[in-house]
Design a protein around this nucleic acid. Structure first.
Length: 556
DNA sequence: ATACGCGTAAACACGC
DNA sequence: TGCGTGTTTACGCGTA
């Protein structure tokens, strides 16, 4: 087996996938580039900048003054911009996060290799820079996952990677290339590389540095065009700085939280409803929902080291002992698990249950369970023999999974009561759990514990509709409720009080099926059970549509 | 040291 | 016969 051997490559592939699936939206410079005219001439403030006459020496002083004024104006605008970004992040952070970390992988947003194309005016023409920046602000805040900090650093521009901004302070930094020696470096120039001019949108071939210097002085002299280009470049850098600052801020908050220190203020976003985030029955300090996405990419280091021995990959996943609400975790990291070859930190039983409960009729055939696994997790698209066997094994082993003969064959349902039985209630909110969360030193353990806590912090998630997958929202909501640690709601004794309501009768019946061996043996093989567990099980498929329309049908 | 949960592998039976 | 499905057992590992 190769439990996690291909993590790195898969992550790259996932990142590439994310790059392709979310084109443009995550690129902070596109909106900036959109301000350029077809020939790379920016149209700042809506006023086209006419190419200035060459070598306007007599007007140089005025132009420098105007340039400085423009810079000052830009700084003010940028600061206002940042404030607006922050506010917007507070308002609309979560919906963008719902797409998961991969769709908005910031490494796609900061990949410097895309800049030249953008400078050529490939950004959306005509799109106001303001709009794109706004959009970018959303994406930045939403995609500001720690995945950036851990997975993307190699892709971040070296000139940016070591910038450390004070927490969220949008200091208007002059880009490094501007502050660095401009033409003094012998044999090299920051704007010269691979025999061509690196001036944005230029790419003029220059045989040597001298020719490049000449080209630079002639083609990129201090004029309106160059000034505007510089402004645009500054905006690009600025956006990257902002993003980096956000990422750093988020990382600090995460680290502070994981070490159980008094959490630093989270100036960026965390629009977690206070009532929900702070009042979990388990008494745990739950991480902000927005930190859920970032934590997932933390896993690779831990996974690559911990589970490689004979035990198998899933030895120490955050089992449903204290991590049953996988629904929220899945909702947050749906895209990640879907694309990254990472084993989900949940037990097979939890996953099977989730798969079943995500369906409107709360029942799945084995093959449908397989499909759910492969659809939801890239990891399960390989080693099929292994995990499929495990799925079957779990279905048969655990009493919480009930096989029901349906019209179209055997389907599997979940006996929620049995499922809750096998979860020690002491785990929720127990000091042991907290200790175990803290004691996790390796990334894997830390991540597992963190995800366990994450998974329990499902209420914030539920307050943002965007966080839920449309198909699973109905099942996630009640799931999250019961899995946070609240006692299982008493099920109807007979289950006949509300025929259309599927789950309670289903559960009660399932208890009968499993807890009465004689009866179970009878309705296992020979066809329809005596008392149909629920109308949908024995009824035609059309009935399920009715049940699907019932909101919050489960455990509510 | 022990029990337990979990994942994995494997054997086996059954039906199509 | 081959395959999918379902059951069962055994083993190793980690944790309580």
């Amino acid at each position: 087996m190769q439990p996690y051997g291909s993590w790195a490559g898969s992550r790259e592939a996932a990142a590439a996938d994310a790059t392709t699936t979310a084109p443009g939206a995550d690129r902070p410079w596109e909106g900036v580039a959109a301000a350029w005219g077809p020939e790379g001439v920016p149209e700042a403030d809506g006023t086209p900048l006419c190419p200035p006459p060459r070598a306007p020496h007599q007007a140089l002083g005025n132009k420098q003054l105007a340039f400085q004024q423009q810079l000052l104006q830009m700084q003010q605008l940028q600061q206002q911009h940042l404030l607006s970004l922050q506010r917007q992040g507070l308002v609309s952070l979560q919906p963008s996060q719902a797409s998961g970390p991969l769709q908005t992988l910031p490494q796609a947003a900061v990949c410097p290799t895309d800049l030249p194309q953008l400078w050529k005016g490939e950004g959306a023409p005509g799109q106001p820079a303001e709009d794109s920046v706004k959009q970018e602000g959303l994406d930045l805040s939403g995609s500001a996952t720690t995945a950036t900090s851990f997975a993307a650093p190699p892709k971040v521009s070296p000139s940016l990677s070591h910038h450390t901004l004070p927490n969220g302070q949008p200091t208007v930094l002059t880009p490094r290339r501007d502050s660095s020696s401009h033409e003094e470096t012998p044999g090299s120039h920051p704007l010269y590389g691979h025999g061509e001019c690196k001036w944005p949108g230029c790419e003029t071939l220059c045989e040597d540095l001298g020719q490049f210097i000449k080209h630079l002085n002639t083609e990129h002299a201090l004029d309106d065009r160059s000034t505007a280009q510089c402004r645009v470049q500054m905006q690009v850098v600025q956006q990257l700085e902002i993003q980096l600052a956000k990422e750093s801020e988020r990382l600090q908050a995460m680290m502070a939280h994981l070490h159980m220190r008094p959490s630093e203020p989270k100036p960026f976003s965390q629009p977690v409803p206070v009532s929900a985030a702070d009042s979990f029955p388990d008494g745990l300090v739950h991480p902000p929902t927005s930190a859920a996405a970032p934590v997932t990419p933390l896993r690779p280091p831990g996974l690559s080291s911990a589970p490689l021995h004979s035990g198998g990959p899933a030895r120490r996943r955050s089992s449903d002992k204290f991590c049953s609400p996988i629904s929220s975790e899945l909702a947050q990291n749906h895209e990640f698990y879907k694309n990254a070859d990472v084993r989900p930190p949940f037990t097979y039983a939890s996953l099977i249950r989730q798969a079943i409960l995500e369906t409107p009729d709360r029942q799945l055939t084995l093959n449908e369970i397989y499909n759910w696994f492969t659809r939801m997790f890239a990891y399960f698209r390989r080693n099929t023999a292994t995990w499929k066997n495990a799925v079957r094994h779990n279905l048969s082993l655990h009493k919480c999974f009930v096989r029901v003969e349906n019209v179209k064959g055997a389907v599997w349902t979940v006996d929620e009561r049995e499922y809750q039985k096998r979860r020690p209630p002491k785990m929720t909110g127990s000091p042991t759990l907290v200790k175990s969360m803290i004691s996790g030193l390796s990334y894997g353990a830390l991540n597992a514990s963190y995800q366990a806590a994450l998974a329990e912090s499902s209420f914030p998630l539920l307050n943002s509709p965007g966080m839920l997958n449309p198909g699973s929202a109905s099942s996630l909501l009640p799931l999250s409720h019961d899995e946070v640690g609240a006692p299982v709601e008493p099920l109807p004794s007979n289950g006949s009080s509300s025929p259309p309501r599927l789950s309670p009768p289903q559960y009660s019946h399932q208890v009968q099926v499993k807890e009465e061996p004689a009866e179970a043996e009878e309705d296992r093989r020979p066809g329809p059970p005596l008392g149909p567990p629920n109308p949908s099980t024995a009824g035609p498929p059309e009935d399920r549509d009715l049940e699907e329309e019932l909101p919050g049908e489960e455990l509510s």
